[in-house]
């Protein structure tokens, strides 16, 4: 029983196994499928926005609905100032979704079943979240945020903030690990399930169709979870800060 189904790239590599570049095809297989998804998405974007009009066509309508939903989703969590993160989160969602779903097409592969792909995406989120946080709060404000609250008494002013800083740094470092492992494990498990059921032949066909339905749902859910968590990571730094600012303003007014 094969744990992985043959893909177009693996078949080409097998056919040209004597060629020196054949092994690179296998090594970079995930990247090839990622670039295929990139190409498909850009093609869709260009086609949808080529003749944009106030009364949209079918493709433009679909793209507009998607953009509108992502806009509402992100701004619903981050508030109106979260508009600047809409392209990032939206691209992340659609990219992961397409990479998850492309594995269901015969001879294709989900790039997200490779850990390097999900780690790369999680690192992008990690870097952008912390870059935005430092840009928004300033480096000292960023450290201050990581030290947590409340403060005041000796224990609270020195020991606890340092402990909290350490805890927060560990938490922040764990976030990309959990993000990447969750996505990779789920999609890898989906791929394995499909591969296992495919090996049963015609007898396994009903199970295969049923599991494909489950896999589609899992693909959507995993893309959503990754995007939602990324948005929440932004919110932890930015919305929290806005609340603090509001609280400080209130305290100053009362004072």
């Amino acid at each position: 029983m094969h744990t992985e189904l043959p893909t177009l790239v693996s078949l080409i590599a097998e056919a040209f196994h004597s060629q020196p570049w054949a092994k690179y095809l296998i090594i970079w297989q995930n990247l090839i499928y990622s670039l295929l998804v990139v190409f498909i998405l850009i093609l869709i974007a260009i086609m949808a926005t080529r003749k944009k009009s106030f009364i949209p066509g079918r493709l433009q309508s679909v793209v507009e609905v998607f953009v509108g939903v992502i806009d509402d989703f992100v701004c619903g969590i981050l508030g109106p100032s979260g508009r600047r993160f809409v392209p990032f989160v939206g691209t992340l969602f659609i990219y992961i979704l397409f990479m998850n779903l492309i594995g269901l097409v015969p001879y294709m592969k989900s790039s997200t079943s490779g850990l390097s792909t999900t780690v790369a995406l999680a690192l992008c989120v990690f870097v952008y979240v912390h870059y935005s946080a430092i840009k928004e709060l300033g480096f000292l404000g960023y450290l201050d945020h990581l030290m947590g609250k409340p403060r005041g008494v000796v224990a609270f002013s020195v020991i606890l903030p340092l402990f909290m800083l350490f805890m927060h740094i560990v938490t922040e470092l764990i976030k990309p690990v959990t993000l990447s492992l969750r996505l990779r494990s789920n999609i890898f498990a989906d791929d394995m399930l499909i591969a296992a059921l495919s090996s049963f032949g015609i007898k396994g066909l009903p199970f295969l169709f049923f599991s494909m339905f489950i896999v589609v749902i899992a693909a959507v859910v995993q893309a959503l979870v990754f995007s939602l968590l990324s948005t929440i990571y932004f919110a932890i730094f930015l919305v929290h800060d806005e609340e603090d600012k509001g609280h400080n303003q209130l305290v100053n007014k009362e004072g």
């Binding site: 850009i42 974007a45 926005t49 953009v67 806009d71 392209p87 939206g90």
Partner: peptide, 11 residues
């Protein structure tokens, strides 16, 4: 590329 071709325009 999506920022150029989709997000900015559609938003």
């Amino acid at each position: 590329l999506l920022r150029i071709f989709a997000w900015k325009k559609v938003l």
